[in-house]
């Protein structure tokens, strides 16, 4: 009974996070400017990380934690590198 409640709510949460990912993807594709795309990419990373955490709850396995952490690290470094480019001017949009 309580397992069923948990399974269903995690499933619903995953669907919501999936919708969120689609929304950030839309913003990433549409733009219009480079900073919008980078912002969307950063948000996409964070939502992906949270989705991994919910997968971890669903499967009851803690392996996903390491993946989520790596994702957070790589997302941060990537976004900072991209944002640094914006200061240079000369961004092809």
């Amino acid at each position: 009974m309580s397992q069923a409640i948990l399974d269903w709510s995690v499933l619903i949460a995953q669907v919501m996070l999936g919708v969120g990912m689609l929304a950030t993807l839309y913003r990433m594709v549409v733009g219009p400017r480079a900073q919008d795309r980078i912002l969307a990419l950063d948000a996409l990373y964070v939502v992906g990380l949270l989705l991994l955490v919910t997968v971890g709850i669903r499967t009851g396995s803690q392996i996903y934690f390491e993946l989520a952490m790596l994702m957070g690290l790589l997302g941060f470094v990537g976004t900072v590198a991209l944002a640094k480019f914006l200061f240079r001017g000369e961004v092809i949009e």
Binding site: S9, V10, I12, A13, Q14, M16, L17, V19, G20, M21, A23, T24, Y26, R27, L39, A40, A43, V46, V47, L50, T54, I57
Partner: peptide, 16 residues
């Protein structure tokens, strides 16, 4: 999980 996902989704939809 549900409230967290709702807030996150609202943020992303807002982004769009």
């Amino acid at each position: 999980v549900l409230l967290g996902a709702l807030l996150t989704m609202a943020g992303c939809v807002g982004l769009a």
